[in-house]
Amino acid sequence: MPSLKELRARIAGVKSQRKITSAMKMVAASKLRRFQKHAEASRPYAAAMRRMLAELAVATAGQGELPILLEGGKGSTHLVVLLTSDFGLAGGFNANLVRATRQIVARLEAQGETVRILPVGRKGGDAMARIFPTKLVDRITGTGGREVQFQAAAELGERVTELLTSGQVDRVTVVFNRFVNAMTQTPTEEALVPLTVPENDNQTEYSAQYEFEPNEAELLAQLLPRNIQVQFYAALLESAAGEQGARMTAMDNATRNAGKAIDELSQRYNRTRQSNITKELIEIISGAEAV
């Protein structure tokens, strides 16, 4: 049985941990409000970009070969961009994404495609280096829990565009956690190249006739790289909000568990102390009777 000194040390240690987890929960909650606002604000803009490019794709149909950023390459190399966090202590936030990525890779390879992986975020990079070391294209550091700047998405978009235009990859899919609420983040697979239109969008509206200025080909050349950057930006914002929500929930659970552990240790401490006092009283009484 642990001594009173050991129990006091354990209680003090758990109390210290509870202070840390409680502080981390409050920091995550503070960040979550800002990140959630940014993620929700980005959704309409990203959806509008997809709709606009869908209209341009319809307008340019039959006018020759479509750009690779719209139609994809003719090969079978599929790039999976995985967005994770740089830090842990966020429950199953990263583990769920890694599990989803393994399933996606297995499905794509079963379809005869060659898979390459570009992890963004230290946790995802470490996991992919262990699981798929030969499939890594590169490793990119995430935002480190800070607010996502568009420059980060622009650089990622430029890197992916370079891989596409140089013929190293033919299709691109991004995997990230879509923010639902503080307790729910849904692993999401979204195809970027070739361009896809969400099922809930009205597909018939894209067949309408529009006049574009400048012409459709010039607009596509300008908008397609921008669209990839915008979609990455929206995904990074979703991931950032989801990370803070997952961390807030995980730290709240850790704080509650620490409180329960403190109560249990305190009970053991009191029982041990009472037992020691009782034992000492019995020894004193026994000694007095012997005298």
Rank of each mutant, 00 (worst) to 15 (best):
L223Q: 06
T196G: 14
D170W: 06
N94D: 13
R271D: 15
L97I: 11
T101C: 03
Q151S: 07
G91C: 03
L4V: 11
P198E: 01
E283L: 15
A254L: 11
L66Y: 08
F179R: 08
S207D: 15
L69A: 11
R107I: 09
I104N: 04
T173W: 01
K31C: 10
Q222M: 12
K135F: 03
A100Q: 09
T272G: 01
N227S: 13
E190A: 11
K15W: 04
K5N: 13
A217D: 13
E216D: 10
M251S: 12
A261D: 11
G287M: 11
T21Q: 08
T134S: 13
A95K: 10
Q231F: 04
Y210F: 15
L70D: 04
V175I: 06
Q244S: 14
L108M: 12
E55C: 14
I117S: 02
T272K: 07
L89S: 13
S286F: 10
I140K: 08
V115D: 00
A127F: 00
L69F: 02
Y269F: 08
T196M: 13
A95Y: 02
R43I: 14
K135E: 00
T161A: 12
K19M: 07
F232T: 05
S166P: 06
I282K: 14
F176N: 04
E243H: 15
V175H: 02
E283D: 15
G144D: 00
Q151R: 08
Y269P: 00
A129E: 12
L156E: 00
L220N: 04
I11S: 01
T272I: 08
N181I: 04
L56Q: 06
V80A: 03
H38V: 09
A61V: 10
I262Y: 00
R34D: 08
V98P: 00
S76V: 13
V175S: 02
